[in-house]
Design a protein around this nucleic acid. Structure first.
Length: 299
DNA sequence: AAACACAACAACCGCGAACGC
DNA sequence: CGCGTTCGCGGTTGTTGTGTT
């Protein structure tokens, strides 16, 4: 059974041999890839074009950075993922030399577990419910005690979770959006330049203490701690988010990296634009869907 | 030393978007 | 505009290396 895209020809599958790599590299460096479907034939490979493309992009490209992810890269992934979700290709654009596949693998094998161990839902970056946390207990225990992952990628806590809950809901018994039981309070260390610093902070080069600094802090502070309006109007999250961001952000610095991507996307807006180009639609849908998923809201 | 469990990573698969005809 | 092909993306599976029992 070959790939659908190349079912006519016999294709090899599985791991690439050094000889195959060599052929592919030589071909692409001298001729470019052109049409991927024609690459195997032209390069003398018994592979399908799709496989060649993947091998080149994920492994053979000369501009790839190999090796473990740094703490800074990890923080970037977490920050961008919080906004964009599983859009690995978009996330990878913030990490020069890293591929979407690499980012995805790192997320699934490491970051996901780290977030779970912190009681956070890796999908939404919100706090897990107590039931969800309980069900993840085993995984978290395992993850947090994994010596290899700690030694390889460093072990740091993005923020602290305290068990005491601030009861902001007691007087709102008629509110249908209430969460029960009340969630724990998320607190944040004052983040000086260290691995805890978020991507946004790095971009802005300041120690902002605004909800925008990180949407974890956004959720932590706004949803659970300081902003009860969320319980009345989910849109308030977005409004509060926007206002506080616009009010408190310093002027944007020059982008750290130039992207030749004319698709205007959330991640690009973050780096290149001011408040005007901020994709609130995407943010809103992300935040709202996250909130709805997490709290079981149905509209 | 062997067997097992797990993490990390490479590669595959299927789907949808983009593109050309 | 419809259709076929190609490309890119995200989810998933497979493979390999390493640690543990």
């Amino acid at each position: 059974m070959g790939h659908r895209c190349c079912s006519k020809q016999k294709v090899k599958r599985g791991l690439w041999s050094p000889e195959e790599d060599d052929k592919l590299v030589k071909h692409i460096t001298t001729h470019g890839h052109g049409s991927w479907s024609s690459v195997p034939k032209l390069a003398g490979l018994q592979r399908c074009g799709k496989s060649c493309r993947l091998r080149w992009i994920n492994y053979l490209r000369p501009d790839l950075k190999r090796g473990s992810f740094t703490a800074e890269e990890e923080q970037i992934i977490i920050d961008v993922h919080r906004i964009l979700g599983n859009r690995w290709a978009q996330i990878a654009k913030h990490l020069p030399g890293r591929t979407d596949n690499e980012v995805k693998n790192f997320w699934n094998s490491c970051i996901k577990k780290k977030l779970l161990s912190q009681g956070l839902d890796p999908k939404t970056h919100n706090l897990l419910s107590s039931r969800q946390r309980a069900s993840n207990k085993l995984a978290c225990k395992y993850s947090s005690s994994s010596p290899s992952s700690q030694s390889q990628h460093g072990s740091f806590t993005v923020f602290n979770i305290t068990s005491h809950a601030k009861d902001t809901n007691n007087n709102n018994n008629n509110n249908t959006m209430m969460m029960n039981p009340p969630p724990p309070v998320v607190t944040f260390p004052h983040q000086s330049p260290n691995p805890n610093t978020t991507y946004a902070q790095n971009l802005y080069g300041s120690s902002m203490d605004t909800p925008f600094v990180s949407s974890s802090s956004c959720f932590g502070n706004m949803l659970y701690e300081s902003d009860p309006c969320i319980w009345d109007d989910a849109n308030a999250v977005v409004e509060t988010f926007e206002e506080s961001r616009v009010d408190s952000l310093p002027p944007m610095p020059q982008p750290q990296q130039q992207e030749n991507d004319d698709k205007i996307d959330m991640d690009c807006s973050l780096m290149e634009g001011g408040a005007g180009s901020f994709d609130l639609g995407l943010l809103e849908s992300t935040l709202l869907s996250a909130a709805m998923d997490d709290f079981g809201w149905n509209f």
